[in-house]
Amino acid sequence: MIRFCLGVFLLLGVLLQNGCAMERTTAESSVVDSYATPDDELDFLDALERRRVVTNHDAIHALLMAAEPEAHEDLPTDYESRVNRARQRGWVKEDAELPPNESATVGMIAVAVCDMLEIKGGLTMRVFGPSPRYATRELIFRQILPRRTDNQSMTGLEFIDLLSRVQERMEVIRAQRAREAREVEEENRAATEVAPADEAT
């Protein structure tokens, strides 16, 4: 029994020591290093498709381009400012360290997607905010993402697939907004047209 306990303690010790040293995959470079401007979008996508992992830099650049399609000219042009913009949008925690060429987590991407699609989530997400874990679970629930955990990484092809789904849903949201605005406008117009007649009667 004593030997068993000692074994368990030793194992825990080894796990603690080595577990803390576990690192994420780091690429030599990011695609955005070569194709940084919005005009390079198509070359960026082609090169990203061939990557086995999507880096933080590539993910944030692509997500910002998708999130702010009307403001491509105002998009940040270097990694620091891109991360700052991501922090402003709540995609990345203030104290989080994100090496540019390290593989992006599904959780970080999921938080950004929830922001872009205005997904409020369930009770936990509403109370504690869009954490990577619950944002990931929310996207799985909505069938935007297949079963993944928030610490996994994505391949380039998977990321582009996800991006396409998000952009498609964003278009639906935009169309709904436009329809609602049109309906409000028509109601207002109808109200103003009816008003003089009412006064006359």
């Binding site: 994505m154 380039g156 092809l157 998977e158 990321f159 582009i160 697939d161 789904r165």
Partner: peptide
Amino acid sequence: FGMRYGGLD
């Protein structure tokens, strides 16, 4: 019909 190919599905 429509056909799509992506990394997820």
